[in-house]
Design a protein around this nucleic acid. Sequence first.
RNA 1: GCGGGCGUGGUGGAAUGGUAGACACACCGGACUUAAAAUCCGGAGGGGGUAUCCCCGUGCGGGUUCAAGUCCCGCCGCCCGCACCA
Length: 872
Amino acid sequence: MSVERYNPREMEPKWQQVWDQAKSFVTSDDDPREPYYVLEMFPYPSGRIHMGHVRNYSMGDVVARYHRARGKNVLHPMGWDAFGLPAENAAIENKTHPGTWTRANIASMKAQLQSMGLAIDWTREIATCEPEYYQHQQAMFIDMMAAGLVTRKQSKVNWDPIDMTVLANEQVIDGRGWRSGAPVEQRELTQWFFKISDMAEDLLAGLDTLTEWPDKVRTMQRNWIGKSEGLRLKFALVDSKGTDATAIEVFTTRPDTIFGASFIALSADHPLTTQLANANAALTDFIAECHAQGTATETLEKAEKKGVFTGLQVQHPAIEGATLPVYVANFVLMDYGTGAIFGCPAHDQRDLDFARRYDLPVKPVVLPPDANADSFAVTNEAFTDAGTIFNSGFLDGLSIDAAKQAAASHFAARTVDGQPQGKVEINYRLRDWGVSRQRYWGCPIPVIHCEVCGTLPVPKKDLPVVLPEDVSFDKPGNALDHHPTWKHVRCPQCGGEARRETDTMDTFVDSSWYYTRFTAPHAATPTVPAIANRWLPVDQYIGGVEHAILHLLYSRYFTRAMKATGHVGLDEPFKGLFTQGMVTHETYKSPTGDWVAPVDVAVETFGEGRRARHLKSGAPITIGSIEKMSKSKKNVIDPDEIVATYGADTARWFMLSDSPPERDVQWTESGVEGASRFQQRIWRLVGDTIEIIKQSSDVVREKDDNEGLALRKIIHRAVHNVGNEIEGLRFNRAVAQIYELTNALVRASGICAVAPASRLAALELGVTHLIQLIAPMMPHLAETCWEALGQPGLVADARWPEVDPVMLVDDEVTLPIQVNGKRRGEITLAKGMAAAEVENLVLSMDEIVRMLDGKAPKKIVIVPDRIVNVVV
RNA sequence: GCGGGCGUGGUGGAAUGGUAGACACACCGGACUUAAAAUCCGGAGGGGGUAUCCCCGUGCGGGUUCAAGUCCCGCCGCCCGCACCA
C-alpha cells in the first residue's frame, strides 16, 4: 500500500483557517458549561518567538484542547507585556518610536504564534501599551490611592549618572551601569510605592491555600516575605554627647542572649549616625565607604565586618552598672528592623567576626547540651544551635524559647523614657513595592503635583493620561520629563499651574492584573466583577520559574488590592501553577574560540563518539556544554525554521516528548526527526486502516475474537491513561502511552489486513481514538486524519472518548515470583485468586521446587494480584 | 551561610515500598532496493555459560523490611533560589 507523505506545510495553514472561520476557539461568557481558565504567561514582544515560548504555549494548548474535549467552556487568551525598557533602547538605536517598534514586533510574533495552531481566543487579545488597557490601570491606581494602598516616600535607588536613570539591581554589574559603564550612585528619590508590606501576613498565610502550586515556589515566596518574630528593645544612652537621642532601639530575634551583649551597632544610614557624623570626620569617611560598598551586592558576602566607634555608651539593660560601646558598622541594614542591633558575639557569626576585630568581649550565654559550663568557650565559630541559657542571671537554666519569652515579659514591664523598654514585634523582609520608573515607555502614573494643593490624583473623567507620541530620545533620561508641554497642566482643584507626574509604572504592575482583564477585555471598566469572578481564579497558569517570586507575588498582592477596591471578589488569582523547565542546546565553538550557531555546524557520529565541523569552511568545531538557548552563545534554534521544515505539530510533539515538563529539555536534531517520523507513522497507519476498511467492505464483520478484545483493552487503557497524564501535566508520560498504543495498532493493522472479520471494528475504533488522543498535541495532523477517516465535524470539537471501565479490568494477572526477594519466575493466574490457592500453585511449580531444593519455605508473602515472595 | 531540588543503560527518561530500565533517541543486525533514503522485522545494562540459566547492577557507606531506585541515618557530587534580614 502506498500512501502519500503527510505534508504539514500544506495542511497546517489550511486547518488554522478552518478553525478561524468556524470561530472554534472564541469563548463566550454565558456558556452554560463548566468554565475552565488556562493561561500561559504572556510574552514580551521582543520581535521573535523562541523555543521557550513554543514549549510554554504547547503545554498550555494541550491543557486547553483537552479540557475543551472534556466538555468545559475553556478560556485560553493571549496578550502582550508590551511596555518596558527594550523598546526605548531600540528607539534610541534605530531612531524609531518605541510604540512603532513594539507594535511591529507584536504583529510578527502574533503571526508566529498563529502558525503554531494554538487554540486561542484572539478576540480577547490585549497589549499593555495601549490606552485601552492602561487607562484601567490608571483608574485602579487612583482607587488604590483612595483606599490608602499607595504611598509616596523617599527611597534609595541605584542611579546611573550618564544615562540619568534609575537602575534595577540586576542592571548594576560590578557597581557600574550595565549600559553606560558609569559607577552607580546611591540617590534618595521620592517614589511611588504600593504598600505590599502591609499585606505580608496575609500573603504568607495565603500560601498555605495554594495546594496546586509547586512547593518550591511556595517556599521561595515564604523566604522572600521572610517573617521573623522578635523583640524591639531600648538601650538608654549614658550620655547623649550633643545629639537629641536618649536611647537606641534595636530589633532582635534573640533576646535570650541579652546577657551576652557586648556592643551596639548602628547602620551607616541611621539618623543618629547622621547626627554624629557632623562632628566626626572619621565617621563621615566611613559612611561614604559603606555607600560605595552598598551597590556591589555580589561582593558583600566576603566583605569584612568593619565599624567605627562613636564615643557613645549605653546602659546594659539587664546588668546593673554595665555599659556597652556604640559602633557604626557596615553590616547593619537601615531598612530592616530599626537599623540598629545589639551584638552578641558568642552566638552570632557576624557579631563574633566584628568582636574579634575590635577586641570586644565574647561571653557565651547558651551552653551546648553536652558541654561543661566552666570550660565552654567560643573561639572562631559562634554557637547558634539549641542549648541551655547560663551566665545570664534570671534566665539561667531556661531553654532558648523559654528565655525568649522570659526576656520579653521582663523588658515589657520596665520602662525607658516612660515607655516600655521591650516590645514583641514581627518583622518582615518584604519591602514595599516601589513602582516609579523614570522612563517614557510605561503606564503614566495618573497624578498631578500642585504647589498649592499638593499631590492629587487625576480626576477619573480626565483618564486616560495618554503618553505623548512626539517624543525625542536624543537626550539621556526620561523622555516624558523632557517633553516641552506634556507635563504642564492645570491643577484639578485650584485651577492654577501644576505639573504632571512624569514617572511611569514598573512593568510588573501591567502584568499583575492582565489575567483579570482577559475576562472582559473590552469592558469600559477595569473588570466586570461578576464575569471576572466566574472565570477566576485561573485554573492552570503555566510559565517559567524565573517568575516564581516577583511576578507571582505582585499578582497575588494586586488581586487583593483589586478586591479591596471592588474590582474582583477573590484573593488568590492562580489556583494551579506549573513552572516549566528551559529549552537547552549543545554549544559549539570554532578553533578561534567564537561561538558557532547550530545551523552552521554538521555533527557526525563515529562509533561511540561524535565530532563536528563547520558546514561551510569544514573547520573542526568543538562540541561544548549543554546550555539554555541564548543569543550570546548562539545555541538557538529558530521556531520559524522548524515550523517551515517539519511543521508546527512536530515542534509541539517534540516539546512534549521525553523530558518531564518541569525539567529542562534538550533540543536535538535527532529528536525532532524522530517526532517528524512519528507524525508520518500516524499518517501511514490511518492510510493503511482506511485501505483495509475499503478492501474488506464485503467481509462480514464478526464479533471480536481474542485478538480483537485484547486490542480493545489496550485502546481503553490508553485513553484512560493519557487523560490522567494530561490532567497531571505529565505530558512526557502521555506521549509514551500514545507511542505504545500506536505500536499496538500498527501491529494489529498488519494482522487485520489478512484477517479483518473479527478485528476490523476494534482497529477502526483504536485508530479513531488514537487521533483524538494526539489531537491536543498535534492538532493539524489530527484534523487531517479525522477528515480522512470520514469522521463528522472537527476533531477539535469532538468529545474525549469514553472509557469503558469493564475494559480496564483484566481477568488474568501475571505475578512475578520471588525467592528471598529475587525474581525467579512468574505465573499467570485468574485475578483475585485466594492466597492459599496461589500458594499451592506456586509451590508446585518446577522452578520453585528446584529452588527450594527440598527445604521447607520459612514464610510465603502473597500480595494479591501483585507479587509472591517465598522466603527460605 | 540559609532554603529547596536532583543523582537510574551510550542519551532523554519510566517505575502507588512489589518483575529496574516502560517509551523515545542513538547504535547494531536482517528484509525490501541496482543503490541510497524511507519503511518493516529483530537485538541490546555489565559479566559468565552451548543452553535451560547464574552472578553483579539505580552516586558512596550503613540501616529498616519478606521485599528498597523508592523509607531512615551519615557522606560525596551537581543544579536552583535567597543572601550581612540581627
